[in-house]
Simulated assay, not measured.
Amino acid sequence: MPENEPEPEPEPEPEPWEYSLYIPNDLRAVTVSRRTLRLILTMHGLISLVDVAELLAAELVSNAVRHTKGPAALRVRWSVGVLRIGAWDADPEPPERPRPLDQAADHEDGRGLALVRACADTWGWHPLSRHGNRGKYVWCELKAA
């Protein structure tokens, strides 16, 4: 590049965004959550994350709906190259510890968080108690390549 030409500016980091989808305690909510997440990621140009993100969201929402009696919510947040997917439910009890995948395959239950642990870059949970809402938030993160 000639000396008097400025270097090109780096691409600006996309602005952070967040969506929340409140869902009833109904197994059909898993499909609604997956399709909504696919649309969100497609609209934000994050197609490369769609397949894994759908799997993770389905596991988190499925756990929230199957193992609790109240409403739930899917939260999706993008910030600084990291996609966070989380599910809120009204039960403050911690999620069951994930089994190793080879052991989880032999059981009907316990595979969801094992898949989350295997496919996500990181995951965790924390209890919630604010604005009169109680429960827990189970989340995982995917880093953009």
Rank of each mutant, 00 (worst) to 15 (best):
V138E: 11
L55A: 09
L21Q: 11
L60M: 09
I40K: 01
T42F: 09
W125C: 01
A90T: 14
A64M: 05
C140I: 01
V80S: 11
E59N: 05
E141G: 09
D26L: 11
E7N: 06
P10W: 12
G132K: 03
L55G: 02
G45N: 06
L56A: 13
K69Y: 10
E7P: 03
V116G: 04
G132S: 02
R34K: 14
L37R: 10
A144H: 09
L55C: 05
L56V: 08
R97S: 10
I40Q: 11
N4S: 11
H131P: 00
P100L: 05
T42R: 14
S62G: 14
M1F: 08
T36W: 12
L37T: 13
D26A: 09
E15K: 11
R97H: 07
D89H: 13
L21T: 01
R66L: 08
I40V: 14
Q103L: 11
H131R: 12
W88F: 15
T42W: 08
P8W: 06
T42P: 00
E54Q: 15
N133Y: 12
P94T: 07
H126Y: 10
R130G: 10
V76K: 06
P16L: 05
A90D: 11
E59D: 09
R134D: 10
P98H: 08
I23Y: 04
P14Q: 06
L37V: 09
S33Y: 12
A73V: 08
P6Y: 04
